[in-house]
């Protein structure tokens, strides 16, 4: 009981402090007004449709990234020649943040969904790739040797030994990649919204609240929604990890 009270102490203090601090100004959002705005936004469906647009882009970009990064990572992890020759490209592009190439992507693909999906794919690609390579490399050599001794074909070896052993690491990469993708979509939609017209999505919604309707309550609602989605995505992938690869303890 005392522990529960302790745990709730700081959040409650923060909320009370926020309410008191903000009650001086008319425009400043307060917990009570944010709650009202949240209820209104859920009722009209704006919030959910914005989130759905953003999530759709995240999943599309994430799927592209996974389809490219997983096979490439397996190839790089299992064939040293491939790794040696491609590693320079990976190491060169990995430090370039997805948001830094946003202006180029807007130039190439316009300011619609295409650009947003491309940014997400780029952002999620590297964590998945790096972890897939690491996962393949960390497979016990004796397992591979045993498979070779038993005369398994390369394809069966891949299916029976390599994939199950590398899967935990690949899924960890996907979890990290999905988190980064969700951050990237907010930034991409924000920046696209800041520079041009309509593309939809939660990030754009936040920008509209800032720049046009100056609705700070709505903005805070969007922030909280962003946090809840990030939290849910992370938990969902942790859960998927626990179910699909119960043998791993990552």
């Amino acid at each position: 009981m005392k522990r529960v009270a302790l745990r709730l102490l700081v959040p409650v203090l923060l909320l009370v402090g926020w309410q008191l601090l903000a009650s001086g100004s008319v425009q400043a959002p307060r917990p009570s007004t944010v709650l009202e705005a949240a209820i209104a936004m859920v009722r009209t469906g704006d919030l959910l449709s914005g989130l759905a647009t953003s999530l759709g882009r995240v999943f599309a970009g994430f799927a592209i990234a996974a389809c490219l990064a997983v096979p490439l990572g397996i190839a790089m992890g299992s064939m040293p020649t491939v790794e040696r020759n491609l590693d320079p490209l990976v190491e060169t592009f990995r430090p370039i943040a997805a948001l830094a190439i946003l202006p180029l992507v807007i130039l190439w693909l316009g300011s619609g969904s295409g650009a947003a999906v491309a940014i997400v794919a780029y952002a999620a690609f590297f964590p998945i790739l790096i972890n897939a390579i690491a996962g393949v490399k960390r497979i016990e050599p004796s397992l591979m040797r045993a498979a070779l001794t038993m005369g398994l074909t390369p394809l069966t070896r891949m299916r029976v030994v390599l994939l199950p052993a590398a899967l935990p690491s690949i899924l960890v990469g996907m979890r990290i990649g999905l988190g980064i993708a969700w951050t990237a979509i907010i930034a991409a939609e924000l920046a696209v919204g800041a520079k041009s017209g309509s593309s939809g999505g939660i990030g754009q919604m936040m920008f509209v609240f800032y720049a046009y309707s100056i609705d700070l309550n709505g903005m805070v609602v969007c922030m909280i929604a962003v946090g809840i989605v990030a939290f849910t995505l992370d938990r969902a992938l942790r859960w998927a990890l626990a179910i699909t690869v119960p043998w791993s303890r990552i």
């Binding site: 745990r7 959040p11 907010i186 936040m206 800032y210 903005m219 922030m223 946090g227 990030a230 992370d234």
Partner: peptide, 27 residues
Amino acid sequence: LWNDLLELPVEMLRPIAGIAWIPLALY
């Protein structure tokens, strides 16, 4: 004690990406 005090607020704020604060910070 400190963990009990801070864990919940940290777990509540952490998922909100820094980038999502940009519009509010602009204001």
